[in-house]
C-alpha cells in the first residue's frame, strides 16, 4: 500500500489516455478538467444533494432560533427573543449548567479510566486483553435504552437499599451514566495511538534506569497525549449529547439540557429550545475543532482524524 506516495487526484480517465497522464506529473490539473465524464458529474451532484440533506435540519434549527413566536414550529417573526431565555429563564440556565458540569466531570473520569486501560492494552497485551476488548465491545453495542433501564434500578438500589447516599445525588448519577460509553471510546483511541508507536522509547527509558513510574510519566504519557486530549473532548461532547440514559437516571432538580428538551417535547416546543441548541452546537463545534487541531499537530492525516472522531 502506498499511503506515503504523493496523493494524486486524477479523475478516472479513459483507458489508454490513463497511461499518458500517469507518465506526467501527478498533479496535472489541465488534463483533468478537460475530461469530466457524466458519471463524475452525477457523483458530484449526488454528493452536493446529500450534503444539503445532512444540513437541512440544522439550518432549520438555526433559522427557527430567531423565531419570535410562541411555538417553535409556527414561524411568527424574526427576532432575538428566544436567546433571552438563556439568562432570563432559570430552568433553561440551570439545565445548561447541569449539562456542562456533568459533561466536564464525566469527561475527566472517562479519560482517566480510558487512558490507563488504553495504555495497558497497547503495551501489555495478553489473554486478558481479549476479554477486556470483549467487554468494551459489549458496552459499545448495547443500545442506550438498555443501559438506561438497567442503570436506574441499580442506582436506586445502591442509593436507597444499600445506603450509599452518594448515588442519590443528581450529578453523580449523570456522571455514572455518561461515563460508560465514553470510557470505551477513550480506551480505543489511546490504544490505537500507542499501538501505532514503537515501544522502543519506553524500553530505552527503562534501560537508562528510569523507574517505571518515571517512564510512564515522562515517556508513555506524552506519547499518548494527543489521543488523551482528543478522548477528553470527545467524551465531553458525548456527554452533552446524552439524552436517553440521562432521562432515566436524572434526579429532579438536576435536569441536563437534552432531557429538558425531551420533556418539553410533550408540552409543545418553544423557540428558546432552538436558540439554546444553537449555542450548544457552537460550543460542541469549538470542542471538535480543537480535537482536529490537536490531532493534526500530532501528525494525523484527514483519514486518521475521521477514524478517531467516529469513535475509533
Amino acid at each position: 500500500m502506498t499511503t506515503t506516495a504523493p496523493e494524486t487526484t486524477m479523475t478516472d480517465a479513459a483507458p489508454g489516455a490513463a497511461e499518458a497522464s500517469a507518465a506526467r506529473t501527478p498533479d496535472a490539473p489541465v488534463a483533468r478538467r478537460a475530461r469530466r465524464s457524466p458519471v463524475d458529474t452525477g457523483l458530484t451532484v449526488w454528493s452536493v444533494l446529500v450534503f444539503l440533506f445532512l444540513f437541512a435540519p440544522i439550518i432549520v434549527i438555526l433559522v427557527y432560533s430567531f423565531n419570535n413566536g410562541r411555538l417553535l414550529i409556527a414561524w411568527n417573526e424574526f427576532g432575538f427573543e428566544p436567546y433571552r431565555a438563556l439568562w432570563e429563564k432559570p430552568a433553561v440556565r440551570d439545565a445548561v449548567a447541569v449539562s456542562l458540569r456533568t459533561g466536564a466531570i464525566a469527561a475527566v473520569l472517562a479519560t482517566l479510566l480510558g487512558t490507563l486501560a488504553g495504555i495497558a492494552l497497547a503495551r501489555k497485551p495478553g489473554k486478558w486483553a481479549l476479554w477486556f476488548i470483549g467487554l468494551l465491545l459489549l458496552v459499545s453495542v448495547t443500545p442506550e435504552i438498555v443501559d438506561a433501564v438497567a442503570l436506574l434500578p441499580w442506582l436506586v438500589f445502591l442509593g436507597q437499599d444499600a445506603g450509599l447516599s452518594i448515588f442519590n445525588d443528581g450529578t453523580v448519577r449523570l456522571v455514572v451514566g455518561h461515563s460508560l460509553f465514553s470510557t470505551a471510546v477513550v480506551t480505543y483511541i489511546v490504544r490505537a495511538r500507542l499501538v501505532g508507536l514503537d515501544a522502543q522509547l519506553e524500553e530505552a527509558s527503562a534501560d537508562l534506569y528510569a523507574r517505571p513510574f518515571t517512564t510512564f510519566r515522562r515517556v508513555t504519557l506524552p506519547l499518548a497525549m494527543p489521543a488523551v486530549l482528543a478522548g477528553l473532548l470527545l467524551s465531553f461532547t458525548l456527554s452533552l449529547d446524552n439524552t436517553v440514559v440521562a432521562a432515566f437516571v436524572q434526579v429532579s432538580g438536576s435536569t441536563p439540557w437534552p432531557v429538558y428538551v425531551l420533556s418539553a417535547l410533550r408540552g409543545g416546543l418553544r423557540p428558546e429550545i432552538a436558540a439554546v441548541s444553537t449555542v450548544m452546537l457552537l460550543l460542541t463545534l469549538a470542542a471538535l475543532a480543537l480535537v482536529a487541531v490537536v490531532l493534526k499537530r500530532a501528525g494525523d492525516s484527514a483519514t486518521q482524524i475521521a477514524r478517531t472522531m467516529s469513535g475509533g
Binding site: 482517566l112 479510566l113 480510558g114 490507563l116 486501560a117 495504555i119 495497558a120 492494552l121 503495551r123 501489555k124 497485551p125 495478553g126 486478558w128 486483553a129 477486556f132 467487554l135 468494551l136 459489549l138 458496552v139 448495547t142 438498555v146 443501559d147 433501564v149 438497567a150 442503570l151 434500578p153 441499580w154 455514572v176 461515563s179 460508560l180 470510557t183 470505551a184 480506551t187
Partner: peptide, 24 residues
Amino acid sequence: PGFALAIPAWAWLVTFFVVPVGAV
C-alpha cells in the same frame, strides 16, 4: 501484572454496566 492499569476501567464497567445489565 500487565493488566493492572486496566483494572480501574474494568471495575467501573463491571459495577455500572455488567452488574446492572446482568440484573436486567
